[in-house]
Simulated assay, not measured.
Amino acid sequence: MTTTTKVSICLPTYNRPELLVRCIESCLMQTHANIEIVIGDDSSDDRTAQLVASRYGRDPRIAYRRNVPALGQAPNVASLFERASGDKILLIHDDDYLLVHCIEKLLAQWERYPDLEVAFGDQYETDHDGRIMHAASERMNLAYHRTASASGLQNPPGRVGIVQMFPNNGWLANAALVKRIGYDDHYGTCCDYVFGTRLCLAAKRVCYVNEYVSCYRITDVSVSQATRTSINASSIAAWRFLNSLALPPELEPARKLAMRRLVPIVVSLLARNREARAGLQLALGNLHAYRFGFSPRLYYHLLMIWKATRRPGSESVALLAIKDEQGVDTSRARMP
């Protein structure tokens, strides 16, 4: 299967040609050679188009399209899924990149489990220049429940998406399933999380490989980094989505686990953005997220809420919120 299966690598890009090159090169260097790279360019200038034409214009594996007008993050990804002609689809964002054996390692899981529909592995976290940060990578994967003891088939599969074990990109899945799920832009900057959750809920079998297969780059120019302290932050959108999601009883523990992580982040953001009453209601209505009052973080957030009610928009509230997010929220730029 590793030689006959065609894999479509879907690559959305926006105004980052200097980062895009490494991403494309990592795709072309895959040990699994039967690939196509489907690029959707939402850039506001011609730099990316010129770069792709000059460096890769004669490579039949690359299918580039400039979106005029720009489609936006989620519609761009959705269009890439529709254009993909492979049996499997892999998503990679333009500032991230794949390890050389990524597709081969993930695709091998279909040999072990012929009815598999989704496979994913660990991510390295890198700095802006693409240098791997090993300690940060270990913390990130641990925070997202990717451990050696969790490797193999996941039961139930839907839990993987809900608790954010499923990565924002670098995964591999059956093209038919991916196209059926599509990419929903109703939840803004957390569209990766929404897609991953819906994909895993719909999949019959999902496999986690306890090996590094891709690299996630920390940059200051991502959409969610630009909105991470605002009321439009991906964490708030993810909380709203998860709160409204209809789940069978066996997946309610997964929702509760996800809420345990999300609720304190959202409370902090609400306090910072002058939504003190909403923050207080959320905190008191989800005391399990604060170990029923045994977490010092609850009182830290109550202090933030109190300061917000006394001096709305004060600098002290903003500093408290920023410190709390930086100290606790280990979320990825495109995921809450």
Score class of each variant (00 low, 15 high):
A135Q: 15
G130H: 06
I89Q: 11
D46E: 15
A70Y: 04
S268R: 09
D184A: 15
L98T: 00
R66N: 08
S222K: 01
V77W: 14
Q50Y: 07
D127L: 08
A271S: 10
P12W: 01
V266A: 07
R139N: 11
E315A: 05
D324M: 07
L320R: 11
G57E: 10
M259C: 11
A143W: 08
A78D: 12
M133A: 11
L71K: 06
D96Q: 12
Y216K: 03
M165C: 04
M304C: 05
V328H: 07
T309G: 04
Y64S: 00
T126E: 13
W171I: 05
V21G: 04
V52S: 01
E18H: 13
K88R: 15
M133S: 09
K6S: 08
C190S: 14
W306M: 13
S44D: 12
I62R: 04
Y64R: 00
V68E: 15
H134L: 06
V263D: 06
G121H: 14
H288A: 14
Q164M: 11
S149K: 14
E250C: 00
S316E: 15
K256W: 11
R272V: 12
C102F: 05
Y124V: 01
G121A: 04
T147E: 02
N168F: 07
D324G: 01
G57K: 02
S224K: 02
G285I: 04
G57A: 10
D329F: 12
P12F: 00
R198C: 14
G152S: 00
M1C: 06
Y183H: 02
L302A: 01
R22G: 02
D45L: 05
V163K: 00
N232A: 14
L282D: 07
P114E: 09
Q30M: 07
S8P: 11
A70M: 11
D87S: 11
W171K: 02
A202Q: 02
A175P: 08
E18T: 03
P156Q: 05
H145L: 12
